[in-house]
Structure formats: structure tokens, C-alpha cells
Design a protein around this nucleic acid. Sequence first.
DNA 1: CTGAAAGCGCTAACAT
DNA 2: ATGTTAGCGCTTTCAG
Lengths: 370, 370
Amino acid sequence: MAKVKISDVAREAGVSLGTVSNALNHPEKLRPETLKLINETINRLGYLPNQSARQLAGGATKSFGLVLPRLDHGFSLQIASGAHNEARKHGYDLLIANADNDDILEDHYLRYFMGTQMSGVMVQPMAFPDWHPAMTKMPVPIVHLDIHCSEPGYYVAADNEAQGRIIAELAIARGAHHIVVVGRAAFMQLTLRVLGIHKALALHPDIKIEVIDAGEWNTAADGYGIGNQIAERPADERPDFVVGLTDVLASGVVSALVDKGISVPGQVRVAGCDGNPLAWSGSVPLTTVAPPGYEIGRKGIQLLMEQIENKAPTKTKHIHVSSAARTVTAVTAIEDINRQELVRPFLLERASTQASSQTDATAINLGAYL
Amino acid sequence: MAKVKISDVAREAGVSLGTVSNALNHPEKLRPETLKLINETINRLGYLPNQSARQLAGGATKSFGLVLPRLDHGFSLQIASGAHNEARKHGYDLLIANADNDDILEDHYLRYFMGTQMSGVMVQPMAFPDWHPAMTKMPVPIVHLDIHCSEPGYYVAADNEAQGRIIAELAIARGAHHIVVVGRAAFMQLTLRVLGIHKALALHPDIKIEVIDAGEWNTAADGYGIGNQIAERPADERPDFVVGLTDVLASGVVSALVDKGISVPGQVRVAGCDGNPLAWSGSVPLTTVAPPGYEIGRKGIQLLMEQIENKAPTKTKHIHVSSAARTVTAVTAIEDINRQELVRPFLLERASTQASSQTDATAINLGAYL
DNA sequence: CTGAAAGCGCTAACAT
DNA sequence: ATGTTAGCGCTTTCAG
């Protein structure tokens, strides 16, 4: 129980405290034999450097914090994975906190990380983040994932316009003549998807496109309703390709269609648009466009590194300003950068749009999400 | 960038430094109005307590560390989830580190957490852990997950014997007359599974049981080989139920059987035994017995709490023993407890053993792993 | 409630 | 190459 500390090691090894510290932080400065002696002593005593003390004294930490909204979604895990690999590559540790769908917890961990003198923090914010203006000008580099935003800050997100474009291109490739886009473009993201679809289709004036902007919440039930409506049309007015702005919507459409005896993908192909894993679970595995979590995580760390490196000059080295003059508002010196990185999503084609039936749909899923 | 510190808050709020500290740690000791004033100032200045300093000064941390071997396996995520919820319930934070299948990293994070003055640390060790004897008597409560071990320490794992028993009971329920158990019981875990199977079957002397202990690595290829061998037997010597000691093995068996034109589960039912998600991806979704990750995570935190509470008396409060006498070997005072908790696994029945074909196999998967 | 002061264990100068 | 020392920011006394 008695904690072994650096001075114990020094005493036991018969060297000075500073030497042990050097053995830990600048081993190259020691004579190999001294180093060896010290390391042996460290192991013998089971000494563990007190990280808190190191950080307090040293400043830097060489570790990043990542706050995730949940751990049960492949996308977040991909982010964690990409972030971790990139961080290790730069010699940094990555600590992950699970906000568990709770925005208070999210905030809590965010502050915790910033207070731990992490070198940087990343967060995949919960839906509709309510930015503390303070957050923006925090003393620690921070990157927001999976979200676009015009506020100053660093953001990495999937390219929603590309998401739409990709799905439209698939429709074209599958020989669609009449496409119906389903869903209420209530948020920026969805609007961008619609935009992408239109852009891709602009090159194909022969293809008929129709947007059904019904329902308010983009629920599966909304999708089901729209699917029903489509099913009841005379065959020649029926689309041959339906795009759901979200996968939930699309899967509702599939259910309705199948219930009405319309074959998917035989008579109508259906695709979602956001890589939601639930897309596996329906009766017909749903084609979708998944955001590349791994890349987003990687990119996020890269932006963190960038901030760290640019900021390097800011050496606050023992500048003993008179206490009175220390007006904290000097903080505004931070440039109000807005940096947004978009990462291209990728197509996950499954049974709901396939030309011929294939059996390996599940394998594809696993590759993408596990 | 200039970090706001507690003294800044004190000055701005016109109170003393100690009062701000109290506002943070013992708010009940302050007059409500002072508290409010201080909190406002804290927000206004964007003050973030330096966690490193707090820990250094205060000792405790109210947070746990969890080292996971990987983030891409449902089991580990379940652990994380269960651990997180239980930790929050006790008012603790949970920080997760991903060792990424690298035992050096695992060790690194373990030490990191211990050095961070975490209140406790949990680890789901990589296969074949090579216990540092030191680890056992660390200054921080530690719990090992997903592993049995007779070394002193705290362990929470799935009940492997139950795992075998459950699968055997399923076989019985499905009317098996001739069961083949496939796999090399190379490790304790697998041996226990076999034991469980035998125990369950002991009550049914009419059922024929056969163990094929082939291959050395329990690979899918091994399973395939055994599957082939089974397929080639005359129909009356062929088992009607095959249990793979691991899912990988079982899926190899399924492949071989199907390739030889033997229907699964029509002619032969096959089940795995360890809840590996890959069990979804084969041509026939595989029945398996999954370890209850969530429960294991929960239980782990409970053991941590237990250690913390028992250890409470150990107040090392400023006992200024003479430096010379401070022999570190006093550590041995820790009782060499060996505490093992077993958690019962649960059956995930899928197509490979089902009586009638069902379609919701995927839904079951999602429920279990996402 | 204030003010002052003693550390917590370590790092990074600065000497030697 | 090694020893010495001044903090890092905070929590806790303890006496007003």
C-alpha cells in the first residue's frame, strides 16, 4: 500500500532524485550502467510514477481524450479506432470516455479531460449540441467530430453532400428511371444529402426525380406511410428506386412495400443514406452510405496535432507578471479559426438494391462495423 | 491560453483562495450567496480545476480506469457499458483505454492508470496474460475480467462450465441422440466447457457423446477438417448435434457440412460455445452461448468498490516514519485474497440449431451485441 | 469565512 | 553525469 516514490527509488539505488527523474524522462542522458541500476530498482520496488505529479510539474501529457456519446454504435467505435491508431503513431495515449447519451455527462467528461492537462480533446457531440461559448476558446486544443458548424473551431465530419451523390450514382448505375427521395430535410445534414442527389442527377435529365417530404420526425412509421402510398400507385407511376434520407425511413419504406407484396429489390430498389447498423436487421438488408468513422477519427487527431504544433511557440514560461495586471481576458488572443474537414462516405451495398441476389451481405456489414 | 487558476477566481470573486477550494469540494460549508458568487465567477472566467493538482493534493480521484484489449468486439463493449453504469451509480467516472491487441500497450495503460491515482483499475487481459507478480500487490484496487486465476487477486469471468452445460441442455432439448464435441481443450476455459457438457449429459445416459480432440489451434480450418470427417460417415454413425468448443471451430464445421450437402440444422445441428460475433457471418447463423459482458462489467466495478471500502481504514495520513525505516516491503501487509466471481452466460439460439426456421436471428444478434 | 502555509510527487532548470 | 532546488495548482489544516 505504501506508495513507492521517486525518492525511495533514488535512495535504494544510491543515486540522487534528479537522476531517477532523468532515467524516466531523458534516459539518453545517463550512463547505461546507472540507467540499468535504476531500472532494476524501479522494478524491484514496483515503483509507478505518479502521473498527476508528472503532469503538474511537467505541463504536457502526451495524451488525448475522446468523449463519445455511446459505445454501442459502430460509427463511434470506428472513430475511436482511427483516433487511437493515429494518436499512437504520434506517441500519444488515447483515453476514452463514454457519455452514455447524456449531455450532462458529455460536458462533465469534456471538462474533466481539459482539466487533466490532456494535450487535446475530441468529442463526437450528442445531437443538437448546445455550444458553451466558453468551450470554443478553451486552453486545450479541441476537435468536434461528426458535425459541421460555422462557429469558430475545428470540425471533422462526413461529407453529407457526397453521401447523397453516392446514393444517386448507385441509382443511376442500377438503371433507375424514376427516383423518389423520401424524408424531411429538417437539418443541414439532410439538406446536403438532397443537394448531393440533385447534383448527381442533374447530369441525367432523363431520370425522373420526386421528393416526398412527409412526416416530421423521419421515423420508421413515416417511412412506412410513404411506402404504403408508393405501393398503392399504379405500376407505371411507381418509382423503381427509393432513397430514404435516413436508414430508418428507408427501412420503413421497405416494410410497407414488402407488406403490400411488392418485391424489394425486384420491383423497387430502396436505399438508405446514413450507415445506420439497424439497416442489417430488417427483412431485406438495406443498402446505405456509411460515414467513414475510422478516417474521421484519424483526421481528428491530425487536426489536434496541427493545433499543438502551431501553438508550440506559446511558451508561458515563468512569466511572473504582476498579479494585478493578470487580466484573464488576454485569452481572446486565440485566432477564431473555423476549420472543417469533410471525409467521403462509402457505399455499403446490400440486398435492397442489388442486381442479383448475393449472400455475403452480412460479411460486408461485419467488415464495416466491427 | 493563459490558464485561469483558483487564485484568479478567488481574486475576481473577492474571496479567499481557500473559500473557492471549499466551493469546489465542500459546497455545503458555504453560505449560498457566496457559493453562487463563486460559481458565477468560475463560469465567467472559464475556470477549469486542474485535475492533476487536485489529485496530487487530495489523493482520491473518484474515477476508475478500464483497459480493454479491443473495441471492436461486442463483449468488451458490453463490459464497458456495464462498468460505466455501475461506476456512475457510485459517483465515479470511468475512463477507457484500448490496448488494441497489443500486450505492451495493455501494460502501458495499466501502469498509466495506476499512476494516475485512479481509485481502481479493471482490465480484460489479452489471451495468455503473463502476470507481473508486481501487479498483484499494486497500490490500487484492481480487478481482472474474463479470466479465472488462482493467483491472489480479484477476478470476474463467465462461468465456462455453465457455458458447456447450457449448450448441452440445448442439445437435449432439441432431441439429440448423438452429440459430438469438437475441439482441443487446450486451456482451462475450454476444459471447463467440456466438463459442463459432461455434467449435463450425465443425466442422460441414453445420449451418445463423443469428443473429437483434433487440431491444435482450434482454427476454422480445424473445424472444417472435422466437419468433413463427420460428413463422410455413414448416416447412422453421424451425430445429430455438433458442439464446437469455440465458435470459430463450429463455423468451420458448418462450412464443411454444407459443402458436402448436409443440411444444417436439417440433418445436423451445430452450435458454438463462446458468443463470438463472427457467428453471424457464416452462411448459417450459428447458435452460441454468449458471456454476459454487461454483468461482468458491473460485477467488476462492485468488486472495486468493495476493495475501496474495505481498505478505507488504511489512512496513510502524514505518518512521518523515519526515512531509513521506510522499508518498502511493508507492502506484504495486503492479504493475499483470491476472489473469483462467475457470471452465468446466456444462450443465443440462431438458425444452426433451430427446430423450425426463424427469421429474426439478426435481431437477436443486434440485441446482444449492440 | 479569511489568510497563511505545508505539502502531494515530480520535472526542469541550474549548479557542480 | 549527477546533485540541488524551485515551483506546478490544489487541498487541508490551523488560528484567527
